[in-house]
């Protein structure tokens, strides 16, 4: 359970986080969404007590982070993946964290195995690929077996395999009843992972809702029809309470009626249909519209989906852990969209 009340952070003139209030519940994955520069990372640093709030407070299990007895046993966090000393081995990195929190040594080996880094445990983390660094960060977050987990853009720069691994991990952690709070600047990363979402823009709360509601509210359902009797169908649709606009010679785009209703109307009026399909504005679209007013640099947001994977990233990861293929969650229900390309959501509705 994470609670944030009136949280505000000002850096000089810049109001990075503006009076945020929200709660993150256990047992589900909560997505923390907002365009780049919205204040997601700042909010997470405030929760961890790394930065001092200008006003307001953030609580973990009803306490400020600094007041937690063994903080890593209650909350695990992944901020930037490279928040490690590159000259230190993965094992020693985790060991020094474990010692502070009175976590036994064998647990270090266990989390290394859990994230698939056993083979490179004694190697200096300087040479790790982004994916391996990300895994090391996740190992640190899981070290204390905490009930609350927080990940800041965990899939940034990962290949599809790594992305799926992290998604499955987050869902499995939530299924165990833990609180999982994960940020992203892309709706597409969240729609298959999160149950709840918190959307911010320019530091302000824009929406707090469930992903299902968000989809329902923001996918303006239009129905596409192809028919040789376009004019007649347009009239019939209007009579049934919908509105139709022509799109090309034999096609109509209909609003206000479902595919079922359009089909029934056509049947009742004896109109021949060649195609009847639902088209849905993408969630990314809806998300962008929602946050449009609060985007700082439009170009960055548009392009950021593609920045990701350095060409050598995948190869390097595979090379360093020769017979540790990207591990899979064995006991978690596989998300149904597993085989889809990870950033496409058009397939969802058609």
């Amino acid at each position: 359970m994470i609670e944030v009340r009136g949280l505000t952070k000002r850096y000089g003139d810049k109001l990075a986080v503006d009076n945020l209030t929200f709660a993150v519940e256990p047992g589900k994955v909560t997505g923390f969404l907002g365009p780049n520069g919205a204040g997601k990372s700042t909010t997470m640093r405030l929760i961890l007590g790394l930065d001092r709030p200008t006003s307001g407070e953030a609580m973990v299990h009803g306490k400020q982070y600094q007041a937690l007895g063994y903080p890593m046993r209650e909350m695990g966090a992944l901020l930037e993946a490279k928040a490690v000393h590159g000259g230190r081995s993965a094992y020693n990195h985790l060991l020094c964290l474990a010692q502070t929190n009175d976590i036994p040594k064998r647990r270090v080996d266990e989390v290394l195995g859990l994230v698939g880094l056993t083979e490179v445990a004694k190697k200096r983390s300087k040479g790790f690929s982004l994916g391996m660094s990300q895994r090391l960060g996740i190992a640190a977050a899981l070290l204390g077996d905490p009930q609350v987990l927080m990940f800041d853009e965990p899939v940034n720069g990962l290949d599809p395999e790594g992305i799926r691994w992290i998604r499955n991990l987050m869902q499995a952690l939530a299924a165990e009843g833990r609180t999982v709070f994960v940020s992203s600047h892309l709706m597409s990363e969240m729609e298959n992972t999160a149950q709840d979402i918190i959307v911010i823009g320019r530091g302000k709360l824009i929406a707090q809702t469930t992903i299902d509601k968000f989809i329902a509210e923001n996918s303006t359902g239009t129905v596409k029809v192809r028919t040789p009797q376009a004019e007649a169908l347009a009239k019939a649709v209007a009579a049934a309470g919908g509105s139709a606009t022509t799109s090309g010679a034999d096609a109509l785009v209909i609003q206000g009626l479902s595919t079922d209703q359009v089909g029934d109307v056509a049947f009742d009026t004896g109109i021949r249909l060649h195609e009847l399909s639902q088209t849905r504005a993408s969630l990314e679209q809806a998300f962008m519209e929602l946050t449009a007013d609060s985007v700082e640099y439009h170009a960055t947001v548009q392009g950021s989906g593609q920045t990701a994977v350095p060409a050598g990233g995948r190869h390097a990861a595979g090379h360093a852990a020769p017979d540790g293929p990207p591990p899979q969650i064995t006991n978690a229900p596989p998300p149904p969209q597993d085989t889809e390309s990870t950033s496409e959501h058009a397939g969802r509705t058609s």
Binding site: R73, R106, L114, D145, A172, E176, G324, N331
Partner: peptide, 19 residues
Amino acid sequence: TAVTTDQSHLSTLPPAQGR
């Protein structure tokens, strides 16, 4: 290594005492 968050694959941590 099959990755799992199933805690039966991990030893349970001895309960924390103090801080």
